[in-house]
């Protein structure tokens, strides 16, 4: 069972890999999109706190996090629900969401491959971080990637009930910006606000890995919240899919 699912994921990954090799402009625009909001935050805080070197490092890792966690299921999956082509996916043997998970991995793979040639030299230029910080960044960014995928996936599945899934996704993006540590890094927020922000899924999926990499955040506390959100959103995703497919079946797509 696990072997078959892994084989399906690999096959789907390959398919998307080839498909997107035809879409350099599309991929480029997604990289730009993932970069632009962290840059916006960076410009604001560099202007407000020009002397604080950590700002550069924080936003540098925020760009990496944003690209590594990119999720566009609110476009791809919700459109398949709207136009009824989801029906084809339901006929595939296995658990259909794994197909979209593979799509998501392929997309992130492309985005990382495209942005690495720019971001790695930039990191060397900025400097100021240790190998240990990089190692700590990895588990946090992996959890962040899972949380952002699950959050995007849950929003995409709302397309079973409303024609406005894309708008809701736009709202989640706005919340990511405001509460996810992009508009306002947590290092500039005082308690109790910072205690609230750190516990939200928006921060867990964006700002947290960057704050761990720049040394201002706590890995142990962060991972706890990330684990909680992974379980909660995973359960929500499972339920939404189950109820949504039943509804899709009932209304005929």
């Amino acid at each position: 069972m696990i072997r078959r699912t892994a084989a399906v994921i690999v096959a789907r990954f390959r398919r998307r890999y080839y498909e997107w090799s035809d879409s350099r402009w599309f991929l480029g625009s997604l990289v730009a999109n993932e970069t632009v909001l962290p840059l916006l935050g960076f410009f604001v805080w560099q202007s407000l706190r020009p002397s604080e070197g950590d700002v550069d490092l924080y936003f540098y890792f925020l760009i990496w996090t944003s690209i590594a966690t990119a999720s566009y299921e609110h476009h791809s999956v919700s459109n398949r629900i709207y136009d009824g082509s989801l029906a084809q996916d339901l006929l595939v043997p296995g658990y259909p969401p794994t197909l979209y998970f593979a799509d998501n991995l392929a997309l992130r793979g492309w985005l990382l491959a495209l942005s690495a040639p720019f971001l790695i030299p930039l990191g060397i230029l900025i400097g100021g971080f240790t190998f240990k910080q990089l190692i700590l960044f990895l588990p946090a960014v992996t959890f962040a990637a899972v949380i952002r995928f699950l959050l995007g996936w849950c929003v995409a599945l709302l397309a079973f009930w409303t024609g406005r899934a894309a708008s809701i996704a736009g709202l989640v993006n706005a919340l990511n910006f405001t509460l996810g540590g992009v508009a306002l890094p947590l290092m500039f927020v005082e308690s109790p606000w910072s205690d609230v922000l750190v516990a939200l899924p928006f921060y867990c999926s964006l700002g947290l890995p960057a704050s761990i990499a720049d040394g201002s955040g706590s890995l142990a506390q962060g991972l706890q919240f990330q684990l909680l959100w992974t379980i909660a959103l995973g359960a929500a995703a499972f339920l939404l899919w189950k109820i949504g497919v039943r509804r899709f079946d009932a209304v005929g797509g």
């Binding site: 625009s29 997604l30 910006f177």
Partner: peptide, 16 residues
């Protein structure tokens, strides 16, 4: 370039 989808990009630039 038919694969170019710039609505998201427009939205991001707009945020500035």
């Amino acid at each position: 370039a038919a694969s170019l989808q710039l609505d998201v990009f427009f939205g991001s630039v707009w945020q500035f």
